[in-house]
């Protein structure tokens, strides 16, 4: 039983990171109906932005909340700028082109980022700076609440509350929801659609940046291809929850994290990744539009 609670904590911590990545996929999909394959590499670049900031400011070995905050800021800013540039130069010129063209472009951007990163940063893994002291905050004997997991949870909850506020309480949030329903009509009602789309990329990308720092904090090894697997997981989480749905992305992420942790704990770590996709297949058989996705109405 105590084991189970411990796995629950670990799984939630991992799942909330998946949720952050999934949110980026789902937001861009909601507004452009595009699977932004470059998202996982924006995430990777976030880790490197934080890494180089730490190098530059000499924060490699001064764990603490201030370090966490500055690395988060660096990753969020780095990812925002990159997301903004990708949208502006790779996707916007193709806005009116068939959806497949822009999808292939997304794959191209993804590869461009991966291989540029290998050239610029080198292909060898780097050790991510120590962000927080890994200590046991509360010890219930068999169940331990560790500082890193608590930090992950606090940061993700803050991010999700902020996102919720942004989407439902602000002008730009209303505009984002309007644009995701009908871009042309929103434009005719005076909404500057390009700006709203840029903003969506900024928000989605900075969430990926947050995810990158949190992962770097827990598993301190970063390399130019680090985005691939977590990117797929985040994408699966988004589809699982119902792509385009924000609560769906969070639910999907948590579900993935928890089930992964449980499989490793009670079955075998060999099945860790097989599970993600097995889960996806099973859920999509019964709910083709995902857990919280809208049922598509077929127009005849």
């Amino acid at each position: 039983m105590q084991d189970f609670v411990q796995h629950l904590i670990n799984g939630t911590s991992l799942g909330s990171i998946y949720a952050l990545i999934a949110l980026g996929y789902t937001m861009v999909y909601g507004i452009l109906q595009l699977i932004n394959f470059a998202h996982s590499d924006v995430y990777m670049m976030g880790a490197f932005s934080a890494y180089y900031l730490a190098m530059f400011m000499g924060l490699q070995n001064s764990p603490g909340v201030a370090t966490l905050a500055s690395l988060l800021a660096a990753a969020m800013i780095g990812c925002s700028l990159l997301g903004l540039a990708i949208e502006r130069f790779a996707y916007r010129p193709l806005r009116k082109a068939p959806k497949l063209n822009i999808l292939i472009t997304a794959i191209g951007v993804s590869l461009l980022l991966q291989y540029s990163a290998q050239i610029i940063f080198g292909a060898d893994p780097k050790v991510f700076p120590k962000v927080l002291e890994d200590s046991v905050l509360i010890d219930f004997g068999a169940v331990q609440l560790k500082s890193l997991d608590v930090a992950v949870l606090i940061v993700t909850v803050i991010m999700m509350l902020a996102l919720n506020f942004l989407i439902f309480k602000t002008k730009i949030g209303k505009a984002m929801r309007a644009v995701s329903q009908n871009m042309t009509v929103a434009s005719m009602m005076g909404v500057n659609v390009d700006r709203v789309i840029s903003f969506t990329f900024v928000v989605g990308s900075s969430l990926a940046g947050v995810g990158a720092v949190l992962v770097g904090m827990k598993y301190p090894k970063i390399d130019p291809l680090m985005g691939t697997f977590i990117g797929i997981k985040g994408f699966v989480a988004a589809v699982l929850g119902g792509i385009g749905s924000l609560p769906g992305a969070v639910l999907g992420g948590l579900l993935m994290g928890l089930s992964e942790e449980m499989v490793v704990a009670y079955l075998s770590s060999t099945y860790r990744d097989a599970l993600a996709f097995g889960l996806l297949i099973i859920i999509l058989i019964f709910r083709p539009s995902g857990l919280l996705g809208k049922k598509g109405v077929e127009k005849v």
Partner: peptide, 10 residues
């Protein structure tokens, strides 16, 4: 009302 607010937001 959100439909109306979006339209006047500029």
């Amino acid at each position: 009302i959100e439909n109306v607010l979006v339209a006047g937001s500029h």
